[in-house]
Design a binder for these strands. Structure first.
Length: 283
DNA sequence: CATACGTCCTGCCAGC
DNA sequence: TGCTGGCAGGACGTAT
């Protein structure tokens, strides 16, 4: 489940080796990860040279010459691994696409193949990026920007945080963690949040993303998944995956609830379902 | 428009 | 012990 911190960790790893490398040959082992099919992809990337490596939300963006980009949506278990592997990097277990470079290789590895690779020209990329919400770690992402993203929706705040068109880069893990830290129940309707709750959520979301990034991301299970470098943030998750365990704040039991077909983790004591804050609009 | 749900895919693990 | 069924979930497509 690569989210923003995991995608950014992959990006930083690739920056050491990828820029300046040329794609000599493409080996497609799993065509279904290529959004526009293997032939179009091969044609679009073969002979081209990699430039900067960037990130947008949970997506890794590999710049190519002539203002083209490979946008990599990592899905649940995707990763981009340099071969030979860098220090501390996992070896590929389920290679789907192999870029043979003028020096070494770049492997797109994906166990479940929910990930997708797509080549975009400048205009297509602009349009795609414009469809995503703001970057939560950018300076422009103020409390007001989060408030706007949540809006007056009746949707659960956890679900809204997962909507990439509202905020880019947040997945189920960090949504739950941010809500725990902000002491907001994940099922609360967005419109019920007070100004102070939005402020707390803004601060906790940015804090948890930064901390996870500093730790190189989260590796939930050690089965060959996700991030190239096994992240060390897992043990520092306070609520996610800890149902039945003690709340680190009040020692009540963390609970798991499923809504919109996804698990939510929360402390029923610290994150009451009904707000005890001032009603919306009065704060 | 918003919301809900099925679909993709494989590995893991609880339960028999 | 070995098998099986359920579960995990990001994003998209279709339905309401």
């Amino acid at each position: 489940m690569p989210e923003l911190p995991e995608a950014e960790t992959i990006v930083r790893g690739l920056r050491a080796s990828l820029p300046g490398r040329t794609v000599r040959e493409l080996r497609v082992l799993r065509a279904d990860v290529l959004a526009d099919g293997p032939e179009a992809f091969r044609k679009a990337v073969t002979g081209r040279c990699f430039g900067a490596v960037e990130r947008r939300g949970k997506n890794v963006v590999l710049l190519l010459d002539e203002d083209r980009r490979i946008v990599v949506n990592l899905g649940m278990t995707g990763s981009l691994l340099p071969d030979p592997p860098e220090e501390g990097s996992e070896a590929p277990t389920h290679p789907a696409v192999i870029f043979a470079l003028d020096e070494g290789r770049l492997v797109y590895d994906d166990v479940r193949r929910f990930g997708r690779l797509e080549v975009m020209g400048a205009e297509a990329f602009r349009a795609w990026s414009a469809g995503l919400g703001p970057e939560p770690l950018a300076d422009e992402f103020t409390t007001g920007a989060l408030g706007e993203a949540l809006g007056a929706s009746r949707s659960a705040v956890r679900d809204r945080l997962l909507d990439q068109a509202r905020v880019a880069g947040v997945g189920n893990i960090y949504a739950n963690e941010a809500l725990f830290r902000a002491r907001i129940h994940p099922g609360r309707p967005c419109r019920s949040l007070s100004t102070d709750e939005v402020r707390r959520l803004h601060a906790s979301l940015r804090a948890v993303l930064r901390s996870a990034l500093d730790a190189g991301g989260t590796t939930i299970r050690d089965y060959r998944n996700a991030d190239g470098q096994a992240g060390s943030f897992g043990p520092r998750l306070l609520a996610y995956g800890r149902d039945g365990g003690p709340c680190p704040r009040c020692q009540d039991s963390i609970r798991r609830a499923v809504f919109t077909s996804r698990s939510a983790f929360f402390c029923p004591h610290c994150q009451p379902e009904a707000s005890d804050e001032a009603p919306p609009g009065t704060a």
